[in-house]
Design a protein around this nucleic acid. Structure first.
Lengths: 199, 199
DNA sequence: TACATTTGCTTAACGGTGTTAAATTATTTA
DNA sequence: TAAATAATTTAACACCGTTAAGCAAATGTA
């Protein structure tokens, strides 16, 4: 016979087509615009066919998430292999991570649950601005330089914000982590930034 | 007459009821479970009524986001007022931010676009574990202590991850920020953590 | 008081979603 | 060629956000 394998190959191809179509739609229109019917349209089938290849929509997302991690893993590995000393490796590996996030935005979003809410209106919410101004004011006082330029203050603010928000996000998305350790990390990082704020 | 004001007050009450109902549903079932019909049920009306008070569903979310910032602002302000020295203020303000995120998870989620994907399966994705192991290995080499305990490595890993992921999230959610500044913040923070990894 | 107008609210509907079951068509097997 | 199996579609269900039409009660006016 031999056609058994050919059919198997065709099935695998369709499976890949589904995943590719889903990713492409996400790239073009965002994850919120992804629908089973749109995927079906793209692969020139009707929607129920997809359920022969995936349990449900989440199954597709899960598979893409997994593939995202494989891609990220390769990038991080390559970055490490490009250096000898651990310190250089570490920096390169995180920069690789950073680059991955922006080169493959859609992957990063499903991998780490980052929503693109940003409804244009939300950006300039005065209540939000008030909060960041409060932080900025205190940072200004912390900097000993007589005339700290606004750029430096902004940078320090983002440094603080990033680590706090990052730690929170990680905890909210994949909860069940050690509460005590979080407090330890948070306080260490804050004290670290404050101590070396004038570098 | 005087009934004009009474009616006005009633309308405002209904508006608040809508917001309260929306928040409660989110607290009990998550944002993804929030629907106009569910809100209507909770306030004992039918769905179209809500459109007399809000332009659409996003309008409700926007108002709640705004209220979230007001709440956060109050907490941060109180934290600052509890201390004299800027360094103490700064730490207290970020801890207040941290506490707010977990005390008012639902607010934090709409304010900063944190999705709760975590479909239980995703947690233990082997491809994801491989990536974190790679980072852990290099961190272990960076620590000079002869027998670094696993807790320390984990803490350092989360510190790195938090700042990188935090910075990425902020950029993805409210894009349009300065690319050059991001690189500056990223490299500064990485070098800082690496340099003081043995504290 | 009687009629007209406005208001508050509901029902019905439209086009969309994920998903399942039944029906249909095409392919393979006997 | 006929029966059995596989591949694919159509139809349907229950939900979603949103809008338009209709109704009923309250209000304003003569």
């Amino acid at each position: 016979m031999g056609s058994k394998e050919r059919i198997q190959r065709l099935k695998e191809e369709t499976r890949n087509n589904i995943l590719d179509a889903a990713l492409q739609i996400a790239q073009e229109e965002g994850w919120q615009a992804l629908s089973m019917r749109k995927i079906a349209d793209a692969i020139e089938y009707t929607a129920p066919i997809i359920y022969e290849y995936f349990a449900n929509k989440e199954g597709i997302l899960l598979e893409l998430t997994s593939r995202g991690y494989i891609l990220l893993g390769a990038k991080v590995e390559a970055a490490r292999n490009a250096y000898e000393h651990p310190a250089d490796q570490m920096e390169a590996m995180w920069i690789a991570y950073w680059d991955f996030a922006f080169e493959h935005k859609e992957f990063y979003q499903i991998m780490y649950g980052v929503e693109m809410i940003c409804c244009e209106v939300k950006k300039a919410l005065p209540e939000a601005e008030r909060v960041s101004r409060m932080y900025g004011d205190v940072i200004r006082q912390l900097i000993t330089k007589v005339e700290p330029d606004e750029d430096l203050i902004c940078r320090k603010y983002y440094t603080f914000w990033s680590i706090v928000h990052g730690l929170i996000s990680i905890n909210l998305v994949q909860k069940g982590t050690n509460e005590e350790m979080n407090q330890h990390i948070l306080r260490d990082a804050l004290k670290g930034i404050i101590r070396f704020i004038n570098d």
